Amino acid sequence: MSSLTDTYEKKYPENWVVMQNRIEQCFHKMTLDEKRLLILASPTARMIDASEKDAIEVTADQFANECGIKVSSAYKQLEVASKNLLNRSFSYINERGKRVGVTWVIRAVYEDGYISVCFPDEVLIMLKAFDASNPFTKYKKENVLLLKGEYSIDLYHIAKKYEGMTTFQMTLEDYKLELGLPKSYNRINNLKARALEPAIDEINEKTDINITYENVKRGRTVTGLKFTVKPKAKTQKTLEEKRDPHTADMFTIDGLSDAQLARITRNERFKSDYNHLIPPTSHINQDPNLWVDEMVSRIKKEPGFFNKKRPIREYLEN
């Protein structure tokens, strides 16, 4: 692996998802929860420079919290997703011209409250090696994991790949191929109503970008789609709208400063209540400052979640 690739490996923090573009072509075969599991596991694989022997852990609480689902159903969804990936495979041609078949996951262990998976080298390379020979796409976890539409994650990944170009075009055939659309979507009206506009609407509502599109025609026939991708302005209003409406004013009312939030995250009682959110193998657990930064960020994003076990001000009093 080149030094250039090594530089890319180290430059992205844990809240960024970075994947080779080759993964995009496999996404459309996966269920929503399989995509979520891969997205959650990918930063850990990169940060610890995982090998086939390294088990990458995802907790049910983490899965529920980051994907906006109930904890009571998260473990089962994780279990099903990992079993699906164990049975799912892809292939490539090796340097001797032979076709090689590879499963996405080579081992999965189901524990109390979390699962751990081991990826083969071929998958790990797609999650770790980024350079001119291995083009890649990056985005923040928080901007993709709340997407629930059948094709939303796929279109978001494509849009982020071309975001720097502002506009890009795809033929209808390429669009159907990238998203793995069935023949029933050959009719343009059906494709737009089920596999294009709902995904655009959800992406525009929940993520950091806005997508618009227009038809590309040859005569009267639509032959492709031209997309425009623009980043959203980061306004205070946008940040407030993402909070739970019942708890959005909590920190305004309580008047908690960043320094107080940092003190809260250092509290042993707080750590006991919430250390399950960070996988045991994460590098965050090795550096107290990284733990504080990560947890303060999470509290700010989802204050209601951290007010369930006990009023958050109690951690200042102990």
Rank of each mutant, 00 (worst) to 15 (best):
S272W: 08
G180D: 13
E173L: 05
N87H: 02
P288I: 05
C26F: 15
Q20M: 11
F227M: 02
M19P: 04
M126P: 01
D6A: 15
K309R: 08
T44S: 12
D273Y: 00
K192Q: 08
Y185C: 01
Y92A: 00
E302V: 08
N210K: 15
D254E: 15
I39F: 15
V18D: 04
S282I: 12
L32Y: 05
E111N: 09
E142S: 02
L32W: 13
T247R: 04
L124S: 02
N318T: 15
S51M: 09
R263C: 06
K176P: 00
H276Y: 08
E142M: 07
T221L: 14
V222D: 06
I115V: 06
K138Q: 14
T137L: 10
I153R: 01
H157E: 05
A41Q: 09
G224N: 08
I312P: 00
V229L: 03
E95Y: 06
P43C: 10
N84Q: 13
R298I: 10
N289T: 13
W16D: 10
K138V: 13
L32R: 15
T171S: 01
S42G: 03
K98R: 14
K242I: 06
A50P: 04
D244P: 02
V123K: 07
V58P: 00
D154V: 04
D249Y: 11
Q25T: 14
V109P: 00
T281M: 14
L181T: 02
V17E: 05
D208L: 02
P245M: 11
L225Y: 06
R36H: 03
L4Q: 12
I312E: 07
E95Q: 09
Y12I: 03
R96P: 00
K160V: 01
T281S: 12
D154P: 00
E95L: 09
T221P: 01
A259E: 06
I299V: 05
S152F: 07
L145A: 02
K309G: 04
R22I: 12
S73M: 08
V71Y: 14
A132C: 06
R313F: 01
A193M: 09
R298H: 09
N267V: 07
E79F: 04
T166V: 14
N289H: 12
F227A: 01
I200R: 00
I209D: 07
E202Q: 03
L172I: 13
A50L: 12
K141Y: 02
D61W: 05
D49I: 07
V80R: 13
T44G: 09
K226A: 10
Q260C: 03
A108D: 04
P279W: 11
K237E: 15
T207A: 09
K271E: 13
G219F: 04
Q286V: 05
Y315K: 02
R220W: 10
I312V: 00
N134S: 14
V71K: 14
N190I: 07
K206V: 01
E52Y: 01
S152I: 13
T252M: 11
K53E: 08
N215S: 10
K148A: 08
S73L: 10
K300R: 15
R310F: 06
R194G: 10
T228W: 05
E173N: 02
R194W: 12
S133Q: 15
E178I: 14
N143A: 07
Y162Q: 08
A50G: 04
N275T: 05
I188S: 02
E173M: 03
T59I: 04
D49G: 09
L124M: 01
R194Y: 13
L38F: 11
K70M: 11
P43Y: 09
D201F: 06
N267S: 08
R46K: 09
T247F: 12
